[in-house]
Amino acid sequence: MTPAYQRPRLTPEVFRLLRDQINAHAGLEYHDDALYAFERRLSERVAELSLDGFAEYYQYLRLGGGAELDEVVDLLTTKETYFFRQEYQLRALERELLPRLAVHNARSRRLTLWSAGCSTGEEAYTVAICVLESQLFAGWDVRVIGSDISRRSVAAARRGVYRPSAFRSTPPALRRAYFEERPDGSHVAEGVKRLCHFGQLNLLDPSRASIVGRVDLVLCRNVLIYFDARSRAKVIENLHERLLPGGYLLMGHSESLWNVSTAFELCHLEDDLVYRKPLVTGRLDRPVEQ
């Protein structure tokens, strides 16, 4: 009989070593309660590499260079999400922000929205659907950029094929209008896909972030929670740099720029509070020192 697979155990000491190394590589912060998640998500990699446990894996990461660290980040950060998450915020986007941008950008007829930390693409496609539903941008040059640090997530976003669980908050009419049901899952319609462009980006890396170009609005929801304070400030600085004056930053409902940056101004909407890059910036406010 084949012996049952025994997962290698991750000791607290080795967990701390791994955690610090990942933090140094990608700025991601994990607390002690992430030990189990580490063990569960990385144990298969330890087995694949025929290593004798996590201590050896740590050595391999230390000496093996960035490629394996990217793999680790991939494994730790790939997460399932769903369409039309945080509906109240999307309502604000559709009813208030997109109309404002339609007016603001009427001359250029160009709109660029960035889902920073897009995971497997649900958020970016959701935003694209919102744009189409608003019917404000017909004939415009519209780009919805989705970026994530995880290679696997970006590849999945490109495929644009989803399981039923991704639609738990999607109005059925929108699902019918913008997805095509096939045996392997629900495929994002071509008209939506055409607006979306996906890339692999570490939000901490300003040179890579600059590739995105200037954007009108950034959704960076439930992403900063994975970063330590210093990295969080750096990410916000990079997002600020990418936003056009008057551009908006939308964060998760439990996130704020409190103690992170004073470079944005608060913008009160009917359904939400969002941040905005001031139209005229005398100087770039430095992130708040921790």
Binding site: R151, F198, Q200, I211
Partner: peptide, 12 residues
């Protein structure tokens, strides 16, 4: 220019 530059973020 823009799409080519953005492809620098490709995951592959």
């Amino acid at each position: 220019e823009e799409p080519v530059a953005f492809a620098l973020t490709d995951e592959e």
